[in-house]
């Protein structure tokens, strides 16, 4: 067992983990943060995307011990004070989800995309989300959801959520 210290959604945890524990299993099973999902075993689907120190990462491809000392944000940490993040709003408004299984990872990836490119074109959104798979929506409304969030975040002049 190794002891790690991580700050997840603003709260610091000291945990004993097996060195081989994947970050996604640590989040889901030790911290009970089950909003981060697992959809594959080859790092293709992106259902497990979280932010480590502000960057989007597939948490199925990171060991929990590698996150020692890191600040992590999961889907549960995106809404602030009961206020949905514009991306969450966008997915709801634009019907950007159906079964909702890919949605947390999709939103977390889109967040990183908008951090890097606050005014993405449709093409840039599609390419920016290449690491996330959705089987329900055919992506068109996901693109609209991200556009909605970009507009809202630009209109308000700040980036709510963090």
């Amino acid at each position: 067992m190794s002891t790690i210290s991580v700050t997840v959604n603003g709260r610091t945890y000291q945990s004993d983990v097996e060195p081989r524990t994947l970050l996604v299993h640590y989040l889901r099973e030790q911290l009970n943060l089950t909003g981060t999902h697992i959809g594959c075993d080859t790092s293709q689907c992106g259902a497990c995307v979280v932010h480590i120190n502000g960057q989007s990462v597939k948490s199925c491809t990171v060991l929990a011990v590698q996150a020692d000392g890191a600040e992590i944000t999961t889907i549960e940490g995106l809404a602030q004070n009961g206020q949905l993040h514009p991306l969450q709003e966008g997915f709801w408004e634009k019907h950007g989800l159906q079964c909702g299984y890919c949605t947390p990872g999709m939103i977390m990836s889109a967040y990183d995309l908008l951090q890097q490119n606050p005014n993405p074109t449709e093409d840039e959104i599609r390419h920016g989300l290449e690491g996330n798979l959705c089987r329900c929506t055919g992506y068109q409304n996901i693109v609209k959801a991200v556009q909605y969030a970009a507009d809202k975040m630009n209109g308000s002049g700040n980036s709510p959520g963090e």
Partner: peptide, 15 residues
């Protein structure tokens, strides 16, 4: 817009 969505967009679904 769907009433199913609030829990799914906040990571509060129950799969």
């Amino acid at each position: 817009k769907r009433r199913e969505d609030p829990k799914l967009i906040t990571g509060k679904g129950n799969f």
